[in-house]
Design a protein around this nucleic acid. Structure first.
Lengths: 121, 121
DNA sequence: TTTAATCACTTGCATTGCAAGGTAGTGTGT
DNA sequence: ACACACTACCTTGCAATGCAAGTGATTAAA
């Protein structure tokens, strides 16, 4: 029992790694539709079964902004305090295009390895 | 100039993250064809444009073995010192199947986000 | 014996997801 | 006016992990 749990933890770790890797990419994707604020992003990703939490998202948005991929503007809200609405900069859109290419290449690589693997079974 | 370099670094970081995420998965895939040793793995991944270095691979193989996904045996070599040939355990094969599923799901998520994005342009 | 190649492994650093906690603005009910 | 709940933004500390760089050991060739 304990043994089994221990091994499941490792599977989860790998799965977490896989999700982590594409996180920034997915957030940039979700953001390409225009202005969006943090809660929208979380909802958007949750809809795609990509769970993200605030403690992950906020530092990430700051990083992307520091690197010039994002910009933001304060907007008032009917339901509470003002929100930071983010959007892609030109640099951000350019980066997103590069990442689309990166994603395609990775998919090709994995599927190629997978195909060889399937031959075996 | 310096500004441009700085921004390129960030793109590379994201790309590195994406590659990191699927690293363990790819190594398990490459290993499903039977016994394989570290240099073979590096070659295999390099063929798919997935660059990995020794300092990454060795600790990773140790981790996977510690978690019961891999096993190894020493084999002699004609060209140098003996080699550690790794192979998947039953647990490892089981894990690999789970990761295949995980990969499929992630692909679906990303492609779904991407489709929405394409509508915009 | 010396040199070069091959293998396996370690150390230290930097990045980053995330649980948990903190601060503050806004609206509602009393 | 006051307390309370809700929403939003952000920070701290920890753990995982890729990777550059370096170590040491075995083998074959010169």
């Amino acid at each position: 029992m304990e043994n089994k749990d221990e091994k499941n933890i490792n599977v989860q770790n790998i799965q977490t790694q896989m999700r982590k890797g594409i996180l920034e990419y997915c957030i940039l994707l979700a953001m390409d539709r225009g202005e969006i604020y943090s809660s929208d992003i979380l909802t958007e990703l949750k809809n795609e079964n990509l769970l993200v939490v605030e403690g992950t998202l906020y530092p990430l948005l700051s990083r992307l902004r520091t690197n010039g991929l994002l910009d933001y503007a304060w907007r008032e809200s009917k339901n509470g305090p003002p929100r930071k609405y983010y959007k892609l900069t030109e640099q951000g859109k350019k980066t997103l295009k590069q990442l689309n290419k990166t994603w395609s290449n990775l998919s090709l690589s994995v599927n190629s390895l997978k195909k060889k693997y399937e031959k075996n079974n």
